[in-house]
C-alpha cells in the first residue's frame, strides 16, 4: 500500500500524525513532509486510519 501525499492541501491538522507518528512525519511547522509514503503490510491498518482522518483530504490511499 502507498499513500499519496498532496502536500499543497495539508493545513497542519496533524490528525494523521496523532494516529501513526512513525508513518506520517511532520515538519517543524507541523505540516506533512512532502513525498509519498510506502507502507509495509504490518502498518497498513494504522496508515489507513491516519490517511482517513485527514480533514483536508490531503492523503490519498493507493492500493
Amino acid at each position: 500500500m502507498r499513500i499519496l501525499v498532496h502536500k499543497e492541501k495539508c493545513q497542519g491538522h496533524a490528525r494523521c500524525w496523532s494516529m501513526a507518528p512513525d508513518i506520517f512525519d511532520l515538519d517543524d511547522e507541523g505540516y506533512i513532509v512532502a513525498g509519498d509514503i510506502d507502507v509495509t503490510p504490518d502498518d497498513e491498518k494504522k496508515a489507513w486510519r491516519g490517511a482517513k482522518s485527514c480533514p483536508e483530504r490531503a492523503l490519498e490511499i493507493e492500493k
Binding site: 497542519g12 496533524a14 500524525w17 496523532s18 511532520l26 517543524d28 511547522e29 507541523g30 505540516y31
Partner: peptide
C-alpha cells in the same frame, strides 16, 4: 502563519 506555527506545533 509560518512564523507562529512552530510555537504551537504538535511537537
Amino acid at each position: 502563519r509560518s512564523l507562529l506555527n512552530p510555537l504551537l506545533s504538535p511537537k
